[in-house]
């Protein structure tokens, strides 16, 4: 079967093979073999686990078919990235999904509108490569902060989008107000005061 390369980043490559997504982490020659193998194996395992856990908590994610050493086989989601179609209505639904995710104790770690796919009626969250389990207000705050930054940098009318997100987030997550308060605080901190890449 032919493998078609979809993306190749610094960390992993995504290929499409017979309607199945293959995500694999490439070895890095610069680091010690022991470190390299440990990281790639651990990160692959954790990512697969988090994708499955998120799905259990009610957030649409690709179905995991198999996890090899450093490769995840999963469902291909055929749809459009939210960055191309985002509006207030969709932003509210993102809020609901992130609320469910945070209720389950999961931090996505890279919430951008490129990592969300609208397929039919459902919004899927993809790329859990930087995700981890954490129940702290701080981790959740940073998670939401990253998303707000994307709204600001790539979408017009970000205030409306943030407002809509907030509505959805409050619906599904009981500690939403604490986290949103922390987001404001994070924004005012020195290290975020000046713009980062």
């Amino acid at each position: 079967m032919k493998r078609v390369m979809l993306t190749s980043g610094a960390e992993a490559k995504i290929e499409l093979c017979d309607g199945i997504i293959l995500k694999s982490r490439a070895p890095k020659r610069y680091r010690l073999k022991e470190i390299d193998e440990r990281l790639r194996r651990e990160r692959t395992k954790i990512e697969a686990k988090l994708i499955a856990e998120a799905r259990k908590s009610g957030v649409p994610t690709p179905i995991i078919y198999d996890v090899m050493n450093c490769e995840i086989q999963m469902e291909y989601i055929d749809g459009v990235q939210l960055k191309h179609v985002l509006d207030a209505n969709l932003s509210e639904r993102i809020g609901e999904l992130v609320g469910l995710l945070h209720t389950a104790g999961i931090i996505h770690g890279d919430l951008t509108t490129s990592n969300m796919i609208l397929a039919g009626e459902r919004i899927y969250l993809i790329d859990f490569g930087l995700a981890y389990f954490d129940q702290s207000i701080e981790a959740r705050g940073v998670d939401v902060h990253v998303l707000f930054q994307t709204f600001e940098s790539t979408h017009g009318g970000h205030e409306t989008l943030i407002e809509a997100f907030t509505r959805g987030y409050r619906k599904t997550f009981k500690d939403a107000d604490d986290v949103l308060q922390r987001v404001k605080e994070i924004e005012s901190r020195g290290r975020y005061r000046t713009e980062r890449l």
Partner: peptide, 19 residues
Amino acid sequence: QETAFAMLVEVTERALAHT
């Protein structure tokens, strides 16, 4: 050394890819 430097190089590589 190996652990700390691998962390630094990993982020540097990501910056290279990103920019």
